[in-house]
Amino acid sequence: MSDAVLETRGLYKAYGPRTVISDMNISLPAGKIIGLLGPNGCGKTTLIKLAAGILTPTDGEILVCGRQPDEVTRSFVSYLPERTYLSGRMTARSAVDYFSDFYADFDSSRAHSMMAHLGVDPDAKLKTLSKGTKEKLQLILVMSRAARLYLLDEPIGGVDPAAREYILRTIISNYAENSTVLISTHLISDIETVLDDFLFMRSGGIVMQSSVDGAREKYGKSIDELFREVYRC
């Protein structure tokens, strides 16, 4: 338990009368790529934001490597939100410099070579780049850190299939044994081959947690098919 990278105990998050996460108790180990799966609006993004430290729990606890999210956890947690969070006036190069400045675990040569591979002009302003390129650039920045926990919120939604493949391959090739990647998505068939474990989330709680291979053996179906069954209206 104490070496869990992400842990929640009785986690509860509500906005006024609306409960988004209720009584969640999970423990995610190191060295795994884990899928946080569920339909839109079930609380996946909220859980990730709580882990990233930009939301605070209403009740209960969330711990990242045993600490409540603070400036120390932020130095080893790499977060990719669903949005473009870089200023349009920045260039790719200045974004790399910015990350390099603040994050000791950032590898700028790796970032630059991935960008070159993508054909991104390092000195072009970000607002001149296409949406797909910006998303890939953000992924490159996030994955160029040697973090202990990567939080990827819907990294492949709203992106064309070629970009999806690029993103999945980047995640795979970045895999390190002592780090954990938590990917939240509703596009399950694309991602399930990349996952070690998965969690099904619904209405603010976890309804299933298993390894991908274990579930395939047990139920004889892909996680995508299993998902459709579990979530059938």
Binding site: I172, Y175, D196, V212, D213
Partner: peptide, 17 residues
Amino acid sequence: VRDLAFDAKVNPNTMQR
């Protein structure tokens, strides 16, 4: 393992197994 996993687009742990 990494290269195979990359090629198959699967988790390296899975390829290792």
